[in-house]
Design a protein around this nucleic acid. Sequence first.
DNA 1: CCAATGACTACAA
DNA 2: GTTGTAGCCATTG
Length: 110
Amino acid sequence: MANSSTDFFLKVYDVVREIPYGKVTTYGAIAKAIGEAKSARTVGYAMNASHQFDDIPAHRVVNRNGVLTGKHHFPGTYVMQQMLEAEGIEVVDDKIINFKTHLWEPEIRL
DNA sequence: CCAATGACTACAA
DNA sequence: GTTGTAGCCATTG
């Protein structure tokens, strides 16, 4: 409870849950939104643990290049891509087309 | 406690 | 635009 590490995870999940349908965001944006801009890497780690939750759209989180770097952590090979395509996002070569157009930036939380 | 790992990012060449 | 290096921080061994 309220351990500093757990708190970080909860903050990440809180932001990821707010990603609107058909939109995506980056690890850095999430880290920045929770006031841990330098912990972008740890955000990805939190995503790895998000598999135990069913309300964390981790497929909407990509790196700053719009590349599905985390697709290897999904059960299937193209699961993440199919999920994005199901939301109207074009994905080619593990990369989001018009990434900037689908990009959604979370609000800064203090 | 120390070393290694990783779903990242920024900067230099 | 691509490639390499460094910084960052929570988790694991």
